[in-house]
């Protein structure tokens, strides 16, 4: 059993459901010359925006999950809805989900590293603001970048390659949703549970008390066997000290 087995299964079911409606494209082994990196940090002001994704007022979702031996097709980019060059709007709803395969024994540290890694998207003409805890991502792609062909495929490949640089990640896939606000919001149940699992895990590590009766996360710990294992491990560690 893994921490996110249930959520990964539900994500696959979600993709299948959208696939039946003909909204899904799956790209494996996408090749493209490297997108230029940006120099100093660069602001993209409204006037220069080609397209904005998941901005305030639009639907936005961003999270990651992992599995040790679950089904992850390394390099796969799944796009539900139009890619950037096919959008007519200046603002589109957006979800970005990463699924990693690898070894995540030190879950707390892995979470923090993967969370930080989300920020390191050093791509020319691409700017992001993320609030991890709220799972919000707001990105802007400049007119210039859009004209030069920046796409979710390029972003996806970059995100996958970046995460593969972590020595404990040996496979990664990414899912983007741009089809509609409703399609993004449909991910709420899954994303909320993912965040609660991480929150519960963080709480166990950061707080000394492991008292389940008073813990606001006892429901997820009850559901997720893996969380209980982390708890037992911590308890053992602390009693040895």
């Amino acid at each position: 059993m893994g921490l996110f087995d249930k959520e990964i299964k539900e994500l696959k079911a979600y993709i299948q459901k959208k696939n039946d409606k003909g909204k899904v494209r799956k790209i494996v082994n996408f090749h493209h010359e490297d997108w230029p990196q940006k120099g100093a940090s660069e602001i993209i002001l409204k006037d220069d925006v080609g397209v904005e994704l998941g901005n305030p007022g639009n639907a936005s979702k961003c999270f990651f999950v992992w599995t040790e031996n679950g089904d992850v097709r390394d390099g796969r980019i799944t796009i539900i809805g139009p890619d950037l060059t096919e959008c007519k709007c200046e603002s589109i709803p957006f979800a970005q989900i990463l699924i990693f395969r690898g070894r995540f024994e030190d879950e707390y540290e892995r979470y923090r590293e993967l969370r930080s890694a989300q920020y390191n998207t050093n791509l020319h003409g691409y700017m992001i603001r993320i609030i991890p805890q709220r799972q919000q991502i707001w990105s802007r792609i400049s007119k210039d970048a859009l004209e030069k062909g920046f796409s979710l495929k390029i972003l996806g490949r970059y995100l996958i390659e970046k995460s593969r640089e972590m020595e404990y990640v040996d496979g990664a896939e990414v899912i983007f949703v741009t089809s509609s606000k409703e399609d993004v919001k449909e991910l709420n149940d899954i994303s909320t549970r993912v965040q609660r699992i991480f929150d519960a895990m963080n709480k166990m590590v950061e707080e000394m008390s492991l008292d389940c009766d008073t813990c606001e996360y006892n429901d997820v710990c009850y559901d997720v066997q893996e969380l209980r294992k982390i708890r037992e491990r911590l308890q053992k560690l602390r009693s040895e000290k």
Binding site: L45, D47, R129, I130, P132, R134
Partner: peptide, 21 residues
Amino acid sequence: LEISSMLDYEILDALAEYPGL
């Protein structure tokens, strides 16, 4: 990290934006 992320996000949202300004 969460607090600074929130600040960066909110500050971008607080900007009154004009061409070049």
